[in-house]
Nucleic acid binder design. Structure first.
Length: 273
DNA sequence: AATGGCCTGGTG
DNA sequence: CACCAGGCCATT
């Protein structure tokens, strides 16, 4: 499940390989993965364009083009972007699109569940309007005070709040649970009931867990791999996520699971309140 | 702010 | 054979 650390890891693995590459063509095997444009339109807009840089916004991965436009991809749950050297390149049964460069190299977009999306934006403002994302978690403008302010008066659960991309972008189910555990806060607490100290603790914990996730190159529970097909290592360091019934690493109590905001939420009944 | 839909492979 | 995983979006 690519969340911020996984998307950032994919970005870092692809950047050195594709910056400077010029698009030749795009094969679209599953047109449903394109949002808002047809395969021939995407081809027209990419052909001959050079990739000038890469960026990440929340869980979206972007490539900025010399036309001023950008190609943006969301991996959703099972999406993968795999860099292919010209010599060994083959599609899989889950290949939804292939971006070919004039160099002969390519990037394959594979996605088992067909949830992932490929988008194209003419400029920055149309992109921002469409994605409508909140703060980047590491944005220095998001201080303890601002975070506390965001929470105040909200009755929805803190877990559900953390998952809402229009407030803070990039946090998914895994890193939300891990951040809440590290902050010692129960996931069902109404967001507005967190004290200033708790809010500060949570912001710090979320930042730490995301940074550590990037450091370990993401969590590979199932499908996730980076642009070179490599798995991450953060799954070894998860303290509560997916550990129902197993002992808490701090107190030994059995980790519990509850459904919140329609999602499994794992927590330690003793360490989190 | 909460809920159902989109998807499909793996599991009970 | 039903159900679960879980991003985001549309609907209520």
């Amino acid at each position: 499940m690519p969340e911020l650390p996984e998307v950032e890891t994919v970005r870092r693995s692809l950047a050195p390989r594709i910056v400077g590459q010029v698009f030749r063509s795009v094969d679209v095997d599953f047109p449903g993965c394109l949002e808002g444009l047809a395969p021939h339109e995407l081809n027209e807009r990419l052909r001959g364009r050079c990739v000038e840089g890469t960026f990440r916004l929340g869980k979206y991965l972007g490539f900025s083009l010399d036309s001023g436009a950008s190609l943006v991809i969301h991996l959703r749950m099972t999406g993968r972007l795999i860099f292919c050297e010209a010599t060994h390149f083959e599609k899989t049964e889950y290949t939804r699109a292939v971006f070919h460069f004039v160099s002969g190299k390519a990037v394959r977009f594979d996605d088992q569940r067909k949830f992932g999306r490929v988008m194209w934006f003419a400029n920055q403002s149309s992109l921002e309007r469409r994605l409508a994302l909140g703060y980047e978690p590491f944005d220095p403008r998001l201080g303890e005070r601002e975070f506390s302010e965001l929470l105040s008066g909200r009755r929805r659960s803190i877990k559900s709040f953390l998952l809402d991309q229009k407030h803070i972008a990039g946090i998914g189910n895994i890193y939300a649970d891990e951040g809440l555990f590290r902050a010692g806060i129960a996931p069902w607490r109404p967001a507005g009931t967190l004290s200033q100290a708790e809010a500060a603790r949570l912001l710090k914990a979320v930042r730490e867990v995301l940074a550590e996730g990037i450091e370990y190159k993401g969590t590979s529970l199932r499908d996730y791999v980076d642009g070179d097909g490599r798995k991450g290592g953060f799954q070894e360091r998860l303290r509560v996520y997916g550990r129902e019934g197993k002992p808490c690493c701090l107190c030994g109590a059995a980790v519990e699971r509850v459904v919140l905001a329609g999602r499994s939420s794992f927590y330690c009944p003793r360490c989190q309140a």
